[in-house]
Amino acid sequence: MLWGSFALFTLVLGLFLAAVLVPRFGRGVSQTRWIILGGLVLPLPVLTGLTFYAFAEGEFLLKGAVSEADEVLEIRATGRMWQWQFSYPSVSGSPVHTDLLHIPAGRTVEIIAESEDVIHSFWVPRLGGKIDAVPGHSNRLRIRADQPGRYGGICSEYCGTGHAGMQFEVQAHRQEDFREVVTGGFRHD
């Protein structure tokens, strides 16, 4: 997309400069031709290809790279001014974690984003897209960390004066350690 845009930009700007600076440039092509070629023939295939590719990619991301059989782990992320609370409905005995999200690496996780007050948005830039936590709704987003490690997360919908500080951390653990970490039995570092 980046290179394609660069090529299109150079093309249009090049044509502009040539038309202004080079005498008689482009006279040979009739005006209607110019418009049809540049206004329809050039952009239509590009846009069609891009749009449909994006549809496919969007479906893929929505499913979160899982085949039907895989099980996704649901985690509830509740935003409130100005912190995130994470709870694990499927892991019994797990306390609520504040501003720290544990996930298993190599497994798709489904975040259920909810809000107790205003709109927030859950976003871990390196793990996937974002989803708004809208009061009265529960929205779902699938993310996946392939490697264990730490990832930064940040609220990305303006939610008042504490918005800039509404950051959290994601820790992806090896599958074996995950349950213990969540229930608090495992001491990290």
């Binding site: 069609t48 749009t51 549809f55 969007g58 929505l62 779902r140």
Partner: peptide, 14 residues
């Protein structure tokens, strides 16, 4: 162009 998605894209929230 606009409505082509109805044929296969996810219809409703997960």
């Amino acid at each position: 162009f606009c409505f082509a998605g109805v044929f296969w894209l996810t219809l409703c929230p997960l």
